[in-house]
């Protein structure tokens, strides 16, 4: 990429000892201009020791704070250190770092403040379990309705934010399952959201934080959070 923006790639990691090193290597290979910050959200395996010797920015949470607060720590770092672009990519290898430059390009060329990599805009063979798929389409329907724009992959944690979005997230970011809620929050604050198609891999290691058991709770919590959001005053920038 010519004249790449000052970029921070934020990788939230909870017990990702099997995949984190590989993910960092891939990010280095595909986004050589970026700084990498790994947020270790209270891992109980060797994730912490591994990232300490990878030469990345390490943000060790003193205990497990949840993905929302962990990601926000990355955004605070990005805001304080003047990054123009912050990319979020999972530590489990589900997202392909080769697609990060594409996300950044979409962010730079368009007028969007947040670019989301979506599995579902184009059929690229990503197989989702049926129940999860149902939940995802309900969520996508509700959120598309609220924000008045078609959003297909609301739970995708593969995203790029510009400076405006970074400073907003550093101040205000949802808690446990932040991705869908953040879309609504962004739109209400007047930030523009855009989706671009990406291919997602099966995981290299570890387990998804969303087990089938948690899915129902997840849906209820996210929908509640989104509706409560609508009852609040619009967040300022």
């Amino acid at each position: 990429m010519r004249n790449p923006p000052k970029t921070l790639v934020i990788i939230p990691a909870l017990n990702e000892e099997a995949s984190i090193e590989h993910v960092v290597e891939l990010v280095r290979e595909h986004v050589p201009w970026a700084d990498i910050a790994v947020v270790n959200d209270g891992s109980t395996d060797h994730t912490g020791e591994i990232i300490d010797r990878l030469g990345v920015i390490t943000l060790h949470m003193p205990f497990n704070v949840g993905i929302g607060a962990a990601m926000q720590t990355g955004f605070i770092y990005a805001a304080r250190n003047g990054y123009e672009v912050a990319v979020q990519t999972d530590g489990d290898g589900q997202h392909d770092p080769a697609e990060i430059p594409g996300l950044i390009r979409a962010l730079m060329e368009g007028d969007a403040d947040l670019v989301i990599g979506s599995r579902y805009i184009e059929d690229r063979g990503y197989v989702t379990p049926r129940m999860r798929r149902l939940g995802i389409s309900i969520l996508a329907g509700v959120i598309s309705c609220i924000v008045g724009q078609r959003v297909t992959d609301t739970t995708s944690g593969f995203r790029a934010s510009n400076r405006r979005a970074i400073t907003f997230c550093a101040r205000l970011y949802p808690h446990d399952y932040p991705e869908p809620e953040a879309i609504v929050l962004f739109r209400r604050a007047g930030l523009k959201v855009r989706e671009v198609p990406v291919t997602m891999n099966p995981r290299y290691g570890g387990r998804s934080s969303i087990t089938p058991l948690k899915s129902a709770y997840y849906m209820a919590k996210v929908l509640l959070a989104i509706f409560v959001n609508l009852l609040r005053r619009r967040p300022g920038l």
Partner: peptide
């Protein structure tokens, strides 16, 4: 939460 975030950020600064 805010304290935990500041601790993580300060720990990196110290490192």
């Amino acid at each position: 939460k805010r304290l935990a975030q500041e601790i993580a950020l300060l720990r990196w600064e110290v490192t």
